[in-house]
Amino acid sequence: MFSFLKDVSREMRKVSWPKSNELTRYTIIVILTVVFVSIYFTVLDLGITQILERI
């Protein structure tokens, strides 16, 4: 168990962590993507609902 934790610690030191400005940029991109996809599927769902109600 301790050997595993040592290996994890050693590997985590090798990780290239994003800088603050990169992290902010990536976070904004993810939030905008989620908002866009949510709006897209909401409009798609409303459109399908309207079509099915007219049938």
Rank of each mutant, 00 (worst) to 15 (best):
L5Q: 00
T27W: 01
D45P: 00
T24L: 14
Y40H: 05
M1Y: 07
R25K: 12
K14E: 10
K19M: 11
F41K: 06
I31S: 00
S9I: 00
S16R: 13
L52Y: 13
T42H: 07
S16V: 12
R25L: 06
T42F: 15
D45K: 11
I29D: 02
S38E: 06
V34H: 00
N21A: 11
L5V: 03
V37Y: 03
E53Q: 13
R13D: 13
M12G: 00
K6P: 00
S9W: 05
L23N: 05
W17L: 13
Y26A: 04
T49S: 15
S9V: 07
T49D: 12
S9H: 07
Y26Q: 11
W17F: 08
Y40T: 06
I39P: 02
L52S: 09
V35H: 01
V8Y: 03
V8H: 00
V37T: 06
I51E: 09
S38M: 10
L52D: 14
L52C: 10
I29F: 04
T49K: 14
L52M: 14
F36K: 03
S38Q: 01
Y40M: 09
E53T: 13
S3V: 07
D7E: 09
D45S: 13
F2I: 07
E11A: 14
S38D: 02
V37G: 02
I31Q: 01
V43D: 03
S9Q: 08
V43I: 15
T27L: 05
S9A: 10
V37F: 10
K19G: 14
R25N: 06
R54L: 15
I28F: 07
L52P: 01
D7G: 08
I29A: 06
R25I: 02
W17V: 06
V37K: 02
Y26L: 12
S3W: 00
V37Q: 03
P18A: 01
W17H: 02
I28R: 02
F2C: 01
V34K: 04
W17T: 08
I39C: 02
V15Q: 04
D7L: 06
T49L: 11
F2S: 06
S38G: 12
I48L: 14
V30K: 06
S38I: 03
I29V: 10
E11R: 15
T27V: 05
V35E: 00
V35I: 12
L32W: 00
